[in-house]
Amino acid sequence: MKKIILTVVALSAIGFANAQNKKESNLGFAKGDVFVSGALLFGSDSKISYYKEDRFVFAPSVGYFVSDNIALGVNLNIGSGSVQATSASGKSKTSTFAAGLAGRYYFNPASQFSLFGELGAAFGTDKSTPVIGNVTKVNSFAVALAPGLNYFVSKNFSLETKIAVLSYASQKGDQPGDENASSIRLGGDWSAVSFGVNYKF
């Protein structure tokens, strides 16, 4: 009987200590948490004597846990760039704007390491302004289902990766005669994998 009591006391003490450590470390997500992520990119490529391409991308995203397991988020993608083919051609300008919504279900959000599934949709417009000629636009719509992993490296920062295993995308230009182009993808490769860093408030 004494052994049983001592065992129960020991297990209770271990459980209490783990709970305290978890509470103090505060690793993981919970209802009411807000996290932000995003990307900032600037690039410049030169391929031949005069060819030059510059691009800038700003892509922030915000998520909010409406329950312990479910997070809803919004994201933007704002980009601009220019292309110069020859010394006399001048620079053609490009711009991108996209906005999307996403929902995530976390299977074990309160843990340092957690799994999630994400369903997201986005609308976007790509605009091209040549030096000579008409401005053209391409409107797009995309939906993707992606499983992912999240790992907290500290109380506020986590690393995540996800892969789009099922996706649908369509796009159409605004010029007369432009046809709608669509694609469906099942399965993933390295081009469908993304990595990110989250900051939790």
Rank of each mutant, 00 (worst) to 15 (best):
S25L: 14
L27T: 05
V34C: 04
A59V: 07
I14S: 11
S25H: 06
L40F: 15
F35C: 02
V57F: 06
F58W: 07
I48E: 13
K47L: 07
K22P: 01
G28V: 03
G43C: 00
L41V: 15
S37T: 14
I48D: 15
A10H: 02
F56E: 01
G28E: 01
F16S: 12
Y50R: 05
S49A: 09
D45Y: 05
G32D: 12
K23V: 01
L40T: 07
S61P: 05
P60I: 05
A19W: 08
P60H: 07
K52Y: 00
S25A: 10
S46C: 02
F29M: 06
A30Y: 03
R55T: 04
L40I: 10
A10F: 11
A59K: 07
A59T: 05
L40R: 04
A30G: 07
K47A: 15
Q20R: 12
P60D: 04
L11R: 06
V34N: 07
S25I: 03
F58Y: 10
R55G: 08
F42I: 14
S49D: 14
V36M: 09
Y50N: 12
S49C: 03
S44N: 12
Q20G: 04
N21C: 07
G15Q: 06
A30R: 15
L40C: 09
A10L: 14
A10Y: 02
A59W: 01
F56A: 11
G38Q: 08
V57Y: 05
K23Q: 13
K47H: 06
G43A: 11
A10G: 08
G43Q: 09
F42N: 07
G28W: 00
L41G: 08
K52T: 04
G15L: 11
L27I: 07
L40A: 14
D54G: 03
N26D: 13
A39S: 15
G15C: 10
F58L: 15
S46Y: 00
S25W: 02
N21L: 10
F29N: 09
G28P: 02
V34P: 03
L41M: 10
D45C: 02
S46G: 12
E24R: 06
S12Q: 07
A17M: 08
D33K: 10
Y51P: 01
A13E: 04
S25D: 08
N21K: 13
F58R: 05
G43V: 04
N18C: 09
S44P: 01
E53I: 00
F16G: 09
G32I: 08
A39T: 06
R55M: 09
A39Q: 13
N21I: 05
K47M: 15
D33M: 06
G28L: 02
Q20K: 10
I14W: 04
N18L: 08
I14A: 10
D33L: 04
L27E: 14
S12A: 15
V57P: 03
S25E: 13
A13S: 14
F42Y: 13
K22V: 00
E53A: 12
E53W: 00
S46K: 14
N21S: 13
S12R: 00
E53R: 09
K52P: 01
L40E: 03
L11T: 11
L11W: 03
G38K: 06
A13C: 07
I14R: 03
G28A: 05
E53G: 02
A19Q: 10
R55D: 04
S12H: 04
V34Q: 06
